[in-house]
Structures are given as C-alpha cells and as structure tokens.
Simulated scan of single mutants.
Amino acid sequence: MRFSEEVCERLDNYVYRLIDPRNGETFYVGKGRNNRVFDHAAGVLDVADDDNQTLGSKLDRIRAIKSAGLEVLHIIHRHEIPDAAVFEVEAALIDAYPGLTNLQGGHASSDRGPMNHLELIDKYSLPQFPSNPEHRLVLININKLEDRFDRRAIYNLVRYCWRISKSRAEKAEYVLAVVRGVVVGAFKPENWMSATRENFPDIPYANGSELHRIGFTGIEAPGDIWNLYVGLRGKRVSDPRLKHSQNPVRFWNC
C-alpha cells in the first residue's frame, strides 16, 4: 500500500505512530511527508533523517515483527501540519508514549515537556543559573530521576553513559546534572572512561555494548561551587546558549 500523488499532496506534513501488532504497543513516533510512514514501517533506512544508531532499536523491533509473520501497524495521528508546528506536534506525541525506540526525545522536550505542578513552579520561580559561568562545564540532561534531592541518584544518572568526545569532556572542571531545565547537581569528574561493565561495576544496567560511549567517576563539587550552580533547590537555565534541545549534552568553555 502506498499513497497516491494526490493523497500525498493533501496530507502535507504529518506525524505518525508505528505499532507492534503482537501487543498493540506504540514503539516509534515520527514525522514525514509523502510515503515516509510506509518506508519506516517496512524498515527502509532514511539516512537523511536518521543515523544508524537511531535506527537500530527500531529496526530490531520491525525485524522481530516480520519474523513472527506479521506487519507493522501505523497510524497517521495528525496531517496538514504547518512547517512551523510539525516539531511541536511530534514532540508532544513522543512525550505521551514512554519507552519508544526513538533515540532522541521530542523537540524541546527537556525544556517544555511533561511536568507536574511542583516542577512548573520550580522551573519558573527558582533562582537563575549564572548567565556567563567562569568555569569549564558539561551540562548533562538526565531523566528518570525520582527524587531531585537524592545526590547519589543524581550522580549515578549523570555519570553514565554519553556519546561525547572524551578529550573534550576531560577539559571540563565540573559536570552539572540538569532536569527539565533546572540544574540539580554539580560534580567534579576525576576519570572519564569507556562505558563498560568493567569500568562501571556499580552501575547495575552497565553492559558491554556501550563502547562508543563514555562515563566518569568523580566526587561532589565543593560547597561553594554547588551553591553557585545548584543552590538549595536548583537553578533554572534561561540562557539559550546553555539550554538543551535535542542533544542531552552541552559544553561550556570546553
């Protein structure tokens, strides 16, 4: 099945879901035009929009579905979307379906994604993060943090594991953990290394397939540094140069 040229023209931009027929689970959300949804459901690579790492988990799921003698289901969630709005529509749908095979979160999800009322109050009432920090910093956006005041949990989430340049990371004086645009932790890295089980035996989910990523071991930043960048309840990042977009890692002065 393919859309005709006439249908493609009427659809314009659209956002779609790929669904596993074995359990009804949505496993991928994407945006596209023309017959992109059919290509993705069939597992056709589109290097222009996705790199091989992005495609890996999605293709594994598609192959498993086909091996079971089934076809990927798909839904066009919204069509005729203006160019200026398509990223926002896609992001909202990605946020609504946890556990997707999408490598990246939705556009501006870390900054404007799902939050409860306390997170929103903190986001817009907390002190501002310094606009021109003097230190060499790595700001890393972390997810799945249950308690923003659990420093051990923050440390374990922010130190493992990231697809970044080791030589550049080693220039950083401090690593800052960011949740929904709020800095919640500051740590001094002592050693950056490959994200393997051998290097990180205390990380229960560490495995041998993350050789292309790195992590660090370190200590909490000194009290004056913590107060400068985190404070009592966190500091909100308002400078566009320091905000996260699609990439979970931002460098400053490195």
Rank of each mutant, 00 (worst) to 15 (best):
G208K: 05
V178F: 10
A48D: 14
V178A: 06
I142D: 01
D224A: 04
F187I: 03
R63K: 14
D111V: 10
N156G: 01
Y28L: 06
R236P: 15
A153G: 01
H107S: 06
F251S: 08
W252T: 08
R250D: 00
S167A: 15
E134Y: 00
F200P: 00
D50F: 15
W192N: 04
E71C: 05
R136P: 05
F38N: 05
V89E: 14
R2V: 11
V44M: 10
Y124D: 05
N116D: 15
E80L: 03
K188W: 10
E90L: 08
I142T: 08
H244A: 03
E88Q: 14
L126E: 04
R180T: 02
Q246T: 07
E210Q: 12
P204F: 05
L139T: 01
L137C: 06
V183F: 05
Y14N: 06
I164P: 00
I140H: 07
N116T: 02
F27I: 03
R63C: 00
Q246W: 13
F200Q: 04
N227S: 15
L139Q: 03
V47M: 04
H79K: 12
Y155E: 13
L232C: 06
R197A: 14
V179S: 08
I219Y: 03
R250T: 11
A41E: 06
R197P: 01
V184C: 09
G69N: 07
K123F: 14
F3L: 14
D12E: 14
L211R: 15
L176V: 06
G106S: 09
G181D: 12
L228K: 14
R233M: 08
S245P: 05
V7C: 11
N247F: 11
F87G: 00
L118Y: 02
A177L: 07
M1D: 08
H77Y: 12
H77N: 04
A221N: 07
E5H: 15
E198W: 01
S194R: 11
G113L: 08
L70G: 02
F3A: 05
N132L: 11
D147W: 13
N35D: 08
K171D: 09
V179T: 09
R112F: 14
E71S: 13
G215L: 06
W162S: 02
P21F: 03
N116I: 07
I140K: 09
E119V: 01
Y205L: 07
V183D: 03
R148D: 14
E220W: 00
F87R: 11
P189W: 06
Y229E: 09
D46A: 00
Q246M: 11
L211I: 12
P98E: 01
R213W: 08
F129Q: 06
E9P: 12
D20A: 11
N52A: 10
R136F: 02
S167H: 10
D51F: 01
I203Q: 08
R233A: 11
R250Q: 10
I225N: 03
P98Q: 07
E71Q: 13
V178T: 05
S167K: 10
L242N: 07
S194I: 09
H40E: 06
E198T: 03
R236A: 15
R17A: 15
D60P: 02
N23L: 04
N13D: 11
G32E: 07
F149P: 02
C161N: 10
D20H: 12
D20E: 04
V230A: 08
G113H: 03
G43Y: 01
A85W: 04
